[in-house]
Design a protein around this nucleic acid. Sequence first.
DNA 1: GTGAAAGCGCTAACAA
DNA 2: TTGTTAGCGCTTTCAC
Lengths: 343, 343
Amino acid sequence: MTTPEPPVRRARRGSGAVTLHDVAKLAGVAPITASRALNTPAQVSPEVLRKVTEAVSRIGYVPNRLAGGLASARSRLVAAVVPTIAGPVFLDTVQALTGALAEQGYQLMLGQSGYVDSREDALLETIIGRRPDGIVLTGVMHSPEGRRRLLAAGIPVVETWDLTPTPIDMLVGFSHVEVGRAVVRFLHGKGRRRLAMVAGDDERSKQRQQAVHDSARALGLPAVPVIEVPAPTTLRSGRQALSALMAAHPHTDAVFCSSDLLALGVMTEARASGIDIPARLAVMGFGDLEFAADLHPALTTVRIDGNAIGRQAARFIVDRAEGREVAERVVDIGFSIVERDSA
Amino acid sequence: MTTPEPPVRRARRGSGAVTLHDVAKLAGVAPITASRALNTPAQVSPEVLRKVTEAVSRIGYVPNRLAGGLASARSRLVAAVVPTIAGPVFLDTVQALTGALAEQGYQLMLGQSGYVDSREDALLETIIGRRPDGIVLTGVMHSPEGRRRLLAAGIPVVETWDLTPTPIDMLVGFSHVEVGRAVVRFLHGKGRRRLAMVAGDDERSKQRQQAVHDSARALGLPAVPVIEVPAPTTLRSGRQALSALMAAHPHTDAVFCSSDLLALGVMTEARASGIDIPARLAVMGFGDLEFAADLHPALTTVRIDGNAIGRQAARFIVDRAEGREVAERVVDIGFSIVERDSA
DNA sequence: GTGAAAGCGCTAACAA
DNA sequence: TTGTTAGCGCTTTCAC
């Protein structure tokens, strides 16, 4: 007579990977102690710390952050949304963000809002599904519906590259209106009177356009024609825009472009059609990308410190994730006009 | 007289977020059924599907992918490593990768190997910790130690932008040796005899250098001087390189640059010092970035389809993650020489 | 087609 | 300082 078999425990086999359990066993401590040794080493005795550290390197343990994130409700993941990564404008910001986050043990997930047929809500859904500790919106407009979902999910949000009057949460940017004004003052101060703009069709560009328009009027300058080009801006659209501009407004003596790449396009077209820069036409860019200083003539442009924006955004999110209250939720990173040869 | 209180269950409160349990309750089914309705709708009855779908949208349920990934050992996360995101070379690849993965419900994590004081093993550790379903190495060299760790972790690896003889796992790229040969043949065919190179100091560039050197010798051309510039390549280093080159080798009649940005720098410097392109000096780039066609003169360059590389890499990884065996693990994406005006 | 039970690997809460 | 217990939210396994 046989005793009834106990129910067969068909335990799900783990992935076979080394787990914290293995470390703990090898070190002769409880798993939680091993966990503490790794996460808050100050809380364990030097002896335990040593044993755990040794066990970790002996068996090549790499903590499973999925499990850690699930248990602690802190994923150490940060999402960044850009219109497209292919435009050079936000690269510095993304780079700085990635780097600064990595230094703190956080990682960046990249989302592109401008990608073909990706509806905003689908993007938000994939992002929220990862339960990131924060989300950085860069050069991105978002629907009221999107704002609500983000807020509802309780995810800290940093908006960047703008200074909206009603931020969702945190904000690091600068005033595009001020940029518009400063550029008009600058060009006016250089004796330019017939200004024009070549501008991308994004929201921030529109703000600068409006400011340029208003400032020009205030200074008694003629109306400022605007050639709109689709975002993302390219060298090609800069060339086309200048040729359209000169056809319609041949007496233009200064062009403010909404990106350095557009400015390069304008300069390229100018050279191809024998327009002297800056004698006949002043050209200003926006962004101060790395190449701006080395163009010929060197590009006068509006310097935006994308790197600083990225670092501040990272600081905001890490502070919030670590439970530190963020005193000032809005940082104006400012801008400056870098005067070179093209204007 | 009071009955003894049951032991207080201080259950850890959930984050308060809506879970699959809530959906199931609302739909009147078991959680696992709700799970199936969402993940494998073909397995449930239309009636159940309807109820679950409705419940989801009613309470705004967003699945927790951390939990899902932990339970299923499939994170639907893919890591990409680039030297730095700030250089324009790999942008198309990263963009295509992000987009193609997003379409399949996967997400991209970005890692930069060239960031300050980030040791390779630290980067690998953070990546492996997320248990990604795949990792894409782009323009990145990796130590034998790194290869072993990746392999040991069982993570599918796609190397890109090169055709190494001993791939770790999967590979999508092209032959830099062939590029070097083709460029020399092309320039030789155009009657150029005194070739030179301006080259970044990365490994792939070295392969092209060697090939150029060998091909030139085979054709009986004089030795090809190389001006090395640090990676990432910039417009500025292109300018400096040309001026150094012309000082040392004034009779050079063709320059092959290891990036379009370098080529733009060379062209800029040439113009600044009155060197006519292409009459006096032919210039070739590498990459065929978006701006190349619109330069003045339009840049003759080696076209690399970074977008296709990204899409193929995504396909490799998704195929593997979905359990489809990848028949051919190496894809040569090829290249072509785009003849324009500069050479 | 649907469900109960168990567990993925980790950490919060409590207790000692 | 260390350990026990009970989950985090989901999917696998097995059974019906």
